[in-house]
Computed example of a mutant assay.
Amino acid sequence: MRKIDDVIDEYTGLSRAVLEYTRVTKRIVDSAKDSGFSVRSWEPLAELVAVDEFERVGNFKEVMNWEQYTDFLTNWASSSEWEGVFKRVTETPGLVFLELEERSSVGEFSNVVNSLAAFEFDEAGKIRHIDVYLQMAMPEAGMLASYEGVGIQE
């Protein structure tokens, strides 16, 4: 298991920026239970983002601008524990793909998902767009029956 802090020094450029974004997110989520936590707590993350043109498309195809995203993050982080375990990062001009195993818990509920996030950058090297894709276990084993027609069996 490799944490972001274990690998960040191996990378430069936009890949390093994405890893820093993830590391800052982890630090803020960890501090979210402290008094005084608010939307303003995300300002260190905003330093890496083109906030005026930012757009995030989430795992349910929901689209958020920076203000909406930080509102969402604030509500989520204040009741969650989160960790991203590094799997792989791939960089192409203006675009970085980050693969993590994400572990999160909210109260009694916890889950582990594989995520791939595509980070698009502007000319200044700021994150302007993120697309999020997830793989997760089926919520109930019996649900696999609905996939029998495509060759998936329990």
Rank of each mutant, 00 (worst) to 15 (best):
A117D: 10
H129N: 15
I127V: 15
A141Y: 06
I130Y: 01
F121D: 04
D131H: 09
Y133W: 08
F121L: 10
L116C: 12
V132W: 01
N114F: 13
S110Y: 03
L134I: 10
N114C: 12
F119C: 07
G107R: 02
H129V: 02
Q135M: 10
I130V: 15
V112S: 15
A137M: 07
R128G: 13
M138T: 03
A137C: 00
F121P: 09
M138P: 03
E120T: 13
E120L: 08
M136C: 10
H129M: 12
A141C: 04
V113H: 08
F109I: 11
M138C: 03
D131F: 04
A117N: 12
V132D: 07
G107V: 06
L134C: 01
M138W: 00
M136F: 04
P139M: 01
F121A: 03
R128T: 03
M138F: 09
F109M: 11
V113W: 05
A118K: 10
A124L: 09
F119W: 08
V112T: 13
V113R: 14
A124E: 15
V112I: 14
K126I: 03
G107F: 05
S105A: 14
I130S: 03
G107P: 11
S105K: 13
S110F: 06
M138A: 06
G125E: 02
G125A: 03
D131K: 12
A124N: 13
E108N: 14
F109T: 10
E108M: 13
A141H: 06
F119R: 10
V112P: 10
G125W: 01
A117I: 01
A124P: 00
S110R: 11
A141V: 08
F109H: 07
P139K: 04
A137N: 07
